[in-house]
């Protein structure tokens, strides 16, 4: 069973083809991470899967009635808009105060309920966004660079929280990231994207793929080091393909 899938998806902005021939799928309880350099179309892919951007070719299919929780990349709330974290959690659907408090408690920031969204730290803000996404009891959680702007301990704590969410709620997770270091360890499957799918597979397979090394080669010693000690890779499991 598949929750969401892209079939030969292409997305254009003007004449520019940002994504071409992207196929992927996410199964229940899976943690799938999309990695890729800046401008590789990672956010575009998430937004196309969500239906925010139209497909220029191919299509997106979802399990009927799929509940998605979405955590966008670096949300800016205008300073002219007064908005407490608690009120934000009630958008667009009204939630009971107890439900809001429980959601904030679950992500570890019960103290921010009455604080202005604009005054929260980066880490608190990401947790509030996650709390809002979890209120819909999602079967699929989509996160766009959720740890951007967090320091290393904050980043690690956030990924632990994500893992915890998966094991508690059973939600599948599709996230975009460029901090390979942590991501590789936490994912079941990694999709390496550079306007098309360069390679795909378990973290171990991807980190050994030549396409992946061509994209991330020298800058990712740490991420590769995580897997290099298991030098038993086997190319029959390697799903990498050139576009």
């Amino acid at each position: 069973m598949t929750l969401i899938a892209a079939h030969h998806l292409a997305v254009r902005r003007g004449r520019d083809e940002i994504l071409s021939d992207v196929s992927l799928s996410v199964a229940p309880r899976e943690i799938v991470t999309i990695v890729g350099p800046n401008g590789s179309g990672k956010s575009t892919l998430l937004r196309a899967l969500l239906g925010i951007l139209p497909a220029a070719a191919g299509r997106v299919s979802r399990k009927p009635g799929l509940r998605i929780g979405y955590v966008p990349q670096r949300l800016q709330v205008d300073g002219t808009l007064p908005l407490t974290a608690a009120r934000f959690l009630s958008l667009p659907r009204r939630r009971a105060p107890a439900e809001v408090a429980a959601a904030l408690e679950r992500v570890g920031v019960p103290e921010v309920a009455d604080r202005q969204l604009a005054d929260l730290s980066g880490g608190q803000f990401q947790r509030v966004l996650l709390a809002r996404a979890l209120l819909t009891e999602p079967e699929l959680l989509m996160l766009d660079e959720p740890t951007q702007g967090l320091d290393q301990p904050g980043e690690a704590a956030f990924y632990r929280l994500i893992e915890e969410v998966r094991s508690r709620t059973g939600a599948a997770i599709l996230m975009v990231s460029h901090d390979l270091h942590v991501v590789m360890a936490a994912s079941d499957r990694v999709i390496c994207l550079n306007r098309h799918v360069c390679c795909e597979g378990t973290p171990r397979v991807v980190s050994n793929a030549p396409e992946y090394r061509a994209l991330f080669g020298h800058g990712t010693q740490g991420a590769l080091a995580l897997y290099r000690h298991e030098h038993d890779h086997d190319h029959t499991h390697d799903q990498c393909h050139h576009a």
Partner: peptide, 11 residues
């Protein structure tokens, strides 16, 4: 919701 963030609204 759309004023807070258009992508969140669309989602």
């Amino acid at each position: 919701t759309a004023t807070t963030n258009e992508d969140l609204a669309a989602a």
